[in-house]
Nucleic acid binder design. Structure first.
Lengths: 232, 232
DNA sequence: CGCGGCGTTGATCTCTGTCAATACTTGTGG
DNA sequence: CCACAAGTATTGACAGAGATCAACGCCGCG
């Protein structure tokens, strides 16, 4: 793990607020693990004895139903942690995790974490902050699925990917469209059509490159329930 | 707060595992608060300086969009705690809370909680367990909305309300159908029609009384994706 | 008795899923 | 270098689920 990796670790809500020593003691000795696209990290129901920090690449968390359908409940990127909370739930992962691009991860041992928490109250607070952050993300996701149409959810997704708040910008879709569709709670075909519906609003797509003419306009489209009564 | 209230408190994942003294020190002196149906406890964006234990009645957590639409993200009952995690998120509630039936609550001070956590690592672990539990609930809710049809979600809701695992049973709908509909991510009209579709599967409704002929049959209906090819 | 909130029912419409056909991209081996 | 296969994305036709709009019935309450 080099210094840029260390910076990433320190940028997470979890390791950003704890002392250098505590962070070191948890992850200092761990090697960085490299995974190829498609690898499964763990499966729903398995014993949860570690959580992860993403140093680079993308990881999806998903649930599968008895009949084989799959619901993506989160996609994580560099600077994010996942599955921290699983270790306090009877020690079983409630979701499965799969690497969706080549990825570099840091594995943090669960047993070690539990020990450190008992010694270091500040770490407990950091864990709680991190869990709360995830809680909030899930609440927002539920709100989205329940209240927004497919094009609106897509627009919101694009806006979150962009750092710009107004004017025009260009972004790259970070992973396959089928996965984006699943994360947004729709089928790939619907994603295509949703993209088409955003075209009149200044969104153009070429492969994984997306350009947005007016970010604020798109944001307004997400907010309001009038689904595009413009002159199209 | 009488002894039966205390039993309820000790039945929560949060206060069930910590020592008597720690639990006492957090809630011992607090009076029970009584709320009438319709009262708002707090609103999305407000400073979060307390969380709650439900002693009796029902409380809904929801988000409202700029244009006034509302998405229920959780409904809590006796023996459940809510908003514990909010106090570790920059001190703002990410949702609004409203009492949906006459309700008895215990208010737990956030500042006090933070202090106790630093002193009592076991409390931190209990908080984490509680947060993880909520996390898992939300993940399951997302899975449901994404993968199940309206009648299936309703059937699942009924099954969770019932304590029975097989055979027949009768249950009471705990709150208004409009709220049930919102929690399940549908409109009241759709809830009516979903109930109608469950009729051939042995579900009959009269006012708020629901009787289920064969719980296992209903469970099978939720699991499988064949949406009722029976002889109806 | 009449009013208002809640729930149901019906007709219609819109969105999204499904199924199928067609590019397009990528990688492989001849 | 090209042909081909496999995976991925788009497009079209169609069907079904659920939303919407409107009307009506039911019950509790003043």
């Amino acid at each position: 793990m080099d210094t840029s990796d260390w910076q990433i670790v320190r940028s997470t809500p979890l390791f950003g607020t704890v002392s250098q020593e505590v962070a070191q003691s948890l992850i200092g000795s761990q090697p960085v693990s490299v995974h190829r696209k498609g690898e499964t990290l763990f499966q729903q129901g398995e014993a949860a004895n570690a959580f992860f920090v993403v140093l680079g690449g993308w990881v999806k968390l998903y649930r599968v139903t008895p009949d084989g359908n799959e619901a993506v409940v989160g996609v994580f990127r560099r600077g994010e942690t996942f599955a921290e909370a699983a270790m306090f739930l009877g020690g079983r992962y409630p979701v499965s995790a799969e690497v969706v691009t080549d990825t570099r991860l840091l594995r943090v041992d669960g047993q070690l974490l539990r020990c450190r928490i008992k010694e270091q109250p500040e770490l407990a607070l950091a864990m709680l902050a991190s869990a709360s952050y995830h809680l909030k993300s899930l609440v927002e996701q539920i709100e989205q699925i329940k209240l927004l149409s497919a094009p609106q959810r897509l627009a919101d997704f694009l806006l979150r990917l962009s750092s710009v708040r107004e004017g025009s910008t260009t972004i790259e879709l970070p992973y396959e469209k089928a996965l984006i569709a699943n994360k947004l709670g729709m089928k790939p075909e619907s994603l295509s059509r949703a993209l088409a519906k955003l075209r009149p609003l200044g969104v153009s797509v070429d492969r994984e490159h997306v350009s947005i003419v007016d970010v604020a306009l798109l944001a307004r489209f997400v907010e309001s329930s009038d689904l595009g009564e413009e002159g199209f």
